[in-house]
Computed example of a mutant assay.
Amino acid sequence: MKTSARRFGIGILFLLFGTPAVAGSYEDFFVAVRQDNPAEVIALLNKGFDPNTVNPNGVPAILAALQLNSPKVAKALALNPNTLVDVRTTKDESPLMLSAIKGYNDVSWILIQRDADINKPGWTPLHYAATGGNLEIVNELLAKHAYVDAESPNGTTALMMAALYGSADVVRALLAAEADLTVKNSLGLSALDFAQKSERKEIIELIASKMRVQRSKSGW
């Protein structure tokens, strides 16, 4: 019975990974991802290992690296021309979104240069960069024509997220890009409401000042 079970297990590995050697490579690969060991990952990729292989939880390698805070491996995978850069988590998060919010700017730059989707439906890389206070990537996304007023499924904009979680510098950048201050999300909250919730006086004043300027120009 034990022999049959063992043969069955080996058969499954063969079907999934081709040979026992490749099966071992699978384990080595994801150990290297977890340990943020780009040299081992690159060595396996050079031997023909697929950079889009999913981990035991079904997560593609580049997303797994970002989730595990392994930026060096994420960078190595982003640089690999065979890596798919627009894969998604179960929460519809892309590699660019995760690298932007975590501040892994080397990875974000590579993904942007590889034409990762900037204006995906729903939550966008700009939302995530703004939430993380990542001014460098916010500016780069805006320069690449990221839609400044993109709305999440509940109508939240990048400016709202910056007002609540981000930085004053990111708020300034979004205001300079003419973010719409009149937009409200599904709860009826505006960017100013988010700023007031954050209780950060500088951000409240930045948004309120911009609103006063717009009112004086348009009369609303």
Rank of each mutant, 00 (worst) to 15 (best):
M211E: 05
F194V: 01
R200K: 15
A208F: 10
S216I: 13
I204G: 02
I203D: 09
K201A: 13
S186A: 12
L187A: 14
K201L: 10
I207S: 00
D193A: 10
E205F: 07
A195D: 00
I204S: 03
Q196W: 08
Q196V: 04
K197Q: 14
S186C: 12
Q214D: 13
S209M: 07
Q196P: 05
S186P: 12
R212W: 02
K201S: 10
Q196S: 10
S198Y: 02
S190W: 01
L189W: 15
L206D: 02
A191C: 04
D193S: 04
A195L: 00
M211L: 12
K217Y: 10
L192H: 04
G188Q: 04
I203F: 07
I203N: 06
R200N: 14
K197E: 14
R215T: 12
F194A: 00
I207E: 04
K217E: 13
Q214M: 10
E199Y: 15
A191Y: 01
S216L: 10
E202N: 04
K184Q: 14
A191W: 02
S198Q: 07
D193Q: 05
K217I: 15
D193N: 09
A208I: 08
I203A: 06
E199L: 15
R200I: 14
G188A: 01
S186F: 13
E202M: 06
N185E: 07
G188T: 04
R200S: 07
I204P: 05
R200C: 07
Q214K: 11
E199G: 09
M211Y: 06
E199M: 08
L192S: 01
S209I: 10
A191M: 04
E202P: 08
I207K: 02
R200G: 10
L187V: 15
L192D: 00
E199S: 09
L189P: 15
K210P: 12
K201C: 11
I203G: 09
K197T: 13
N185M: 08
S216Q: 13
V213G: 11
K184M: 09
A208D: 07
Q196R: 13
A195H: 01
K217S: 15
V213Q: 15
A208G: 06
A208M: 05
K210D: 05
Q214R: 12
G188W: 05
K210E: 03
K210W: 06
E202D: 03
R212K: 07
L206W: 01
Q214G: 07
L187G: 15
S186M: 12
E202K: 06
F194G: 01
Q196K: 13
I203H: 07
S209F: 10
D193L: 06
S209A: 14
S190R: 04
I207H: 02
R200W: 11
K217P: 08
R212L: 11
N185P: 05
L187S: 13
S198R: 04
E202H: 09
S190N: 01
S209V: 13
L187H: 14
Q196C: 15
L206Y: 00
Q214Y: 14
R215A: 11
E202Q: 09
S198I: 00
A195T: 00
R215Q: 14
K201T: 12
D193C: 06
L206S: 03
A195Q: 00
A195I: 02
K184I: 13
S216W: 14
F194I: 03
L189H: 15
S190E: 01
R212I: 11
I207G: 02
